[in-house]
Design a protein around this nucleic acid. Structure first.
Lengths: 221, 221
DNA sequence: GTCTATAGAGTGATAGAC
DNA sequence: GTCTATCACTCTATAGAC
């Protein structure tokens, strides 16, 4: 309790500032000022600025991925080993969108930090990003179970587009709000999730299947 | 000819470096080294680093928007004032994707620079970004003509998702290639454009219309 | 563990010779 | 218009007192 109060203060302040302003123009001095700790504390607790960012990213990355996999597992268990396409996609984009949008900015910092981290070309994170591919493969496998006969490429394009819509919505929510004069309600998080899931599911199920016939819908061992 | 050879050398080098490495870690010294000109030349020709970036962004922004509008205009003229949804979307995402993807890295720098510029939180550009909203309104209006009776919010979501898919494809093409083990062919630019257009058009036409009936498909006033 | 003070290497911008 | 030289400033990282 007495131990890491400074440490967590730094982590929280860094996450909030990076989420708000991006990595380019947030300095260690900004962080320690917001955390109300001393400049040297950062190097004492984390070693360097890059290691601080890495720790932040790894922690959040693990948490998000775990939440995604839990939801995927639950959906597949409920369906006897095979989840509907919509459920798989919901498990993929739901955690991120729920964290980023909506009026409660509680977990917002964490999720917006992650979006920024995956977008901006920041050195320490680029190395870790490979793990996300392994993570996505699990969702590709789940979709393959949901859509037997669908070509692999179609499934990958579906995942890619689902993440694209989710991320862009978080990243550039301001533009959509302004463009639509508020007609697109970004505070309705579940509504946004439903949209992303519906569009992707439509794309995955409506287009031509891989080889033989149409929709071997259910029960396929 | 003798006049602005230095000036354009700086512009080209800056665009290439920013496209490749992002704005965060490209310095004026990197730029002048790549352009093989003197450090002071940047401030002489552009006044400041921010003004250099601004000039780059404004120039490319105007060019892209003009190409988009030309294609939109041509499509609407061919349809007697009303273009198919697919044609409107193609005019929107085609120029960007054609510039960014594909084996020819000729215009690639310009387009990838633009993607980076719209994403990374870079001060001088944030101010200009408002103009893009006015530009997008023209495509919203075109879609409204193509889809009478469709709710405005649906149209805005469609534009938003189309741009999301196009931008993410450019930005993170590496991840999709690796995830799919090359099964998703990003060198097939027209194929990618067709995918983005098809998914968006599907979302715009398949979902529930605004108020009354289904699909007042063609010929409406 | 936390602080002050400072080192050491960058940065963008500019003055002034040519 | 182009160069050299340098200013003023910022950054991260660290040494050493407490």
């Amino acid at each position: 309790m007495s131990t890491d109060t400074t440490r967590t203060a730094i982590l929280r302040a860094a996450e909030r500032l990076y989420a708000e302003r991006g990595f380019s123009d947030v300095t260690l001095r900004d962080i320690v000022a917001a955390a109300e700790v001393n400049l040297a504390a950062v190097n004492y607790h984390f070693g360097s600025k890059d290691e601080l960012i890495t720790e932040l990213f790894v922690t959040r990355s693990i948490a998000t991925n775990r939440e995604r996999l839990n939801q995927l597992k639950a959906a597949e268990a409920a369906g006897g080993g095979r989840a509907p396409v919509e459920a798989v996609l919901r498990a993929l984009v739901g955690p991120t969108l729920r964290g980023c949008l909506g009026p409660d900015s509680e977990r917002s910092d964490a999720a917006r930090f992650m979006i920024r981290a995956t977008i901006e070309a920041i050195a320490p994170i680029h190395k870790i990003k490979n793990r996300e591919i392994d993570h996505l493969r699990k969702f590709a496998a789940a979709l393959r179970r949901s859509l037997p006969g669908k070509a692999d490429a179609e499934i990958y394009w579906g995942l890619h587009f689902a993440l694209a819509m989710a991320h862009q919505t978080v990243r550039d929510s301001e533009r959509l709000t302004r463009l639509s004069d508020g007609k697109c309600d970004l505070d309705d998080v579940e509504g946004v999730i439903n949209r992303v899931v519906a569009v992707t599911a439509l794309a995955l199920t409506a287009s031509k299947p891989a080889a033989d016939d149409k929709a071997p819908a259910r029960r396929g061992r």
